[in-house]
Write a protein that binds this DNA or RNA. Structure first.
Lengths: 199, 199
DNA sequence: AATATTTATTTGGGTTACCAAATTTTTAAA
DNA sequence: TTTAAAAATTTGGTAACCCAAATAAATATT
């Protein structure tokens, strides 16, 4: 699947920095062979850059697991802290932390944790609105990590890792009814399409 | 007990920075009321500065406990990592970490962990070379945290928290013989004077 | 194709964290 | 007290990270 192309403007908007600043930075990254500017001015990561990026993502996600599983933070509270923790240098530390946490395969948002080499073990996942009925499903990730959505899920009592089953699908508005251990919950198609599950 | 006075030169040596740099930094800290330059050019922390410093020390030591107790690092391996971790912002994180670790009162080197307000609960401690014989003693801290000393202690099988007893003191060279669970160990006066114990 | 709009790039500046070398002040020693 | 040494301070500079405004290049629109 082809991802959206990234250019200077897109980056500077995403980072809230001036395009001049971003260009300067990207050029420095290019010197370090972490990025490349394509003939059409698209900015891409080199293999080396991807590897570095995945290592940071790995750290970020492992720290998130720590914060949620060991320090009892909610999954929607950990991002900022993990953003700082991901920059702690030692790779060995993260390795030990990973072991301490029991080698989790996903972070609290359900996103997979790359291994030391940046490999991501990917699971076939499908969005809940098109998943099969009357089968045990596990919530593994979200298509939208906005705070509102996370809070909504919290309120209705759904979380990554939960086992659910679709009991009804309404043709009229494509809402679905699911059942977890305790309750029955009705989800709009909008919500369901942002919840990814495995069988 | 009066501590050695600190001046610009001393600081720049300790930090491996140019005196000009240190002066510039100290002046900035003065603007923030964290330090003061005394008439005799001695640099001191204000109350506000001390509090801030103790908060950082607190974080550092709690992280060290985490690294040693949970990730199985040796006490002499954790300093550099803790130096990075101590700068993670959230105070709440450290509070939770402290709880997760069971509210330790000292770090792996035996140094006390300040509370949230910077208060240090101090224990009466005495150096091993002048401690009483034939009494149960607990090693609580060291007067020298050099890597060589830590490694030496590791080698002879002594660690913070160990319970020992002095069985002999040699007048001749003021060396002492101690006994822990397993062994008898002979320590030079030099070594003993850098090991602090409580009764 | 000609014009308008968007993107990329350049230029000139600001700030912060550094440093080396020069100068001034303080302290210590002769 | 004059001198020598040490410490403090100033001065001038570099590199990193950022910005706003100007210009150039590419893309879209009419």
């Amino acid at each position: 699947m082809q991802v959206k192309k990234v250019n200077n403007i897109a980056l500077s908007k995403a980072l809230c920095l001036n395009p001049a600043t971003v260009l300067e930075m990207i050029r420095k990254l290019c010197l370090n062979k972490l990025t490349e500017i394509q003939p059409d001015k698209t900015i891409i990561l080199t293999e080396k850059g991807k590897k570095k990026a995945l290592q940071i993502i790995r750290k970020h996600r492992i720290w998130e697991v720590f914060l949620v599983n060991k320090l009892n933070y909610k999954w929607n509270e950990v991002h900022d802290m993990a953003e700082q923790l991901e920059h702690i240098e030692s790779n060995d530390l993260v390795k030990r932390l990973e072991a301490f946490l029991g080698f989790p395969s996903v972070d609290p948002h359900g996103d997979p944790i790359p291994d030391e080499n940046g490999k991501i073990k990917k699971v076939k996942t499908q969005s809940l609105d098109i998943a099969p009925m009357k089968k045990k499903l596990t919530i593994v990730s979200l298509g939208n990590s906005s705070n509102e959505f996370l809070k909504y899920l919290d309120k209705i009592g759904l979380a990554i890792g939960d086992t659910i089953e679709i009991s009804e699908m309404e043709d009229f508005d494509r809402s679905i009814t699911i059942r977890n251990k305790k309750n029955q919950i009705i989800l709009s198609n909008e919500a369901a399409s942002n919840i990814f599950v495995t069988m």
